[in-house]
Design a protein around this nucleic acid. Structure first.
Lengths: 195, 195
DNA sequence: CGATAGAAACTAACCAGTTTGTTTGTTGTC
DNA sequence: GACAACAAACAAACTGGTTAGTTTCTATCG
């Protein structure tokens, strides 16, 4: 990794924290440069503008957001619980995504043309054929529902936002309830498998 | 309503739109005063500061947010669908709440000491005794889950944010799926009532 | 008359983005 | 290893516009 590349990285890292904490409007370019031990001139040479920097930051973390938690075997309950844990350890990325929603994409898909999204939809379709997921539901709707459920206690929950320092028993209880709730929510009406 | 009261109202209304659109950091005091056909001096006389104004706006709308959609008879599926429709017609309030979460209350309860929340918990407890809701679940967790599910396609969804102008059939489909998903998610393991 | 409102100018700080002149690191050549 | 040539980085000052918050003085309403 060359010198330029290293500086670019430091700027992206510092910008990630700054944007996650304050959003686009609230972020301060000088703070980012200072935290990155870099120069404002470099920042503008690399990213053009504050918004350009935000987009670069968001794009960089999209991969992490989408692929950090794989959805395999159509196992949505496990997927949801993994997301719960992911939000617990990476609140920064969740906040980043929400700032993007509020400040950049007020409606529609948050991430247009996302191919890793398509692979998740495929997994759900497969699970519908296997009989684990209600085949009468729209697979994209199933996905939206499960993601939303996994955010029940995330940093962007509108009820209670938990965090890592919270009581561990509480985390266990929520994981268990989330897992069961997801399983039941998407289960076919007839195929019922009690606890 | 006196002249003073009317000015106060106009300021609050204008501030609601401004804060919902841009958040606290992004909001502009001059725009608010202009939109309210009022004076900046009045704004500061009434609310002290930009943050003070935001808090006043949020407090005013909390009642609307909490009581616009009642939860009665422990009917959570219907509650969720009504929330879906509420977000559809009042995206402003949802965004306001999320700005508050991001910029003011990064963790814990979004609204501490909320008595209308307690009444909803009571409803859920009652529904657990009736056998409509899984009695092994924590009623507060049930509430958090249902709220989160109702946000699956809201203006703060991290997947797809729908809005009123979207295809009406899509809304119907999502309402139906949301209703069923909520019913199943919180249902007791044994008491299964297929569609 | 007294409370409320208004217009407009003002301040003092802030902030995104630019410029300048200098220094440091990297790379290829002999 | 020495050295030139170039790219990257730096500090710091600067520009021009913006912004929260204040002040003053005048007008209007009850």
């Amino acid at each position: 990794m060359g010198r330029a590349e290293a500086t670019r990285r430091r700027l992206l890292d510092a910008a990630t924290d700054e944007f996650a904490a304050y959003g686009i409007a609230g972020a301060r370019v000088d703070r980012i440069a200072a935290a990155a031990h870099a120069n404002k001139a470099q920042l503008y040479a690399y990213f053009g503008s504050k918004e350009g920097l935000f987009d670069a930051v968001f794009r960089q973390h999209l991969v992490g957001l989408m692929d950090a938690v794989p959805l395999t075997g159509g196992d949505l309950p496990r997927y949801a619980v993994r997301l719960y844990d992911f939000y617990l350890t990476s609140p920064t990325l969740v906040r980043l995504a929400m700032w993007a929603r509020l400040e950049r994409r007020p409606h529609g898909e948050l991430v247009p043309d996302d191919e890793s999204h398509q692979s998740k939809i495929d997994e759900i379709v497969e699970a519908q054929q296997t009989g684990v997921v209600d085949p009468t539901m729209d697979p994209r709707d199933v996905h939206a529902l499960v993601i939303a459920m996994s955010h029940s206690w995330s940093p962007v929950s509108l009820t209670y936002a938990t965090h890592l320092q919270d009581d561990g028993a509480g985390h266990d209880r929520r994981r268990r309830q989330l897992r069961e709730a997801v399983r039941r929510a998407v289960a076919p009406p007839d195929a019922v498998t009690p606890g």
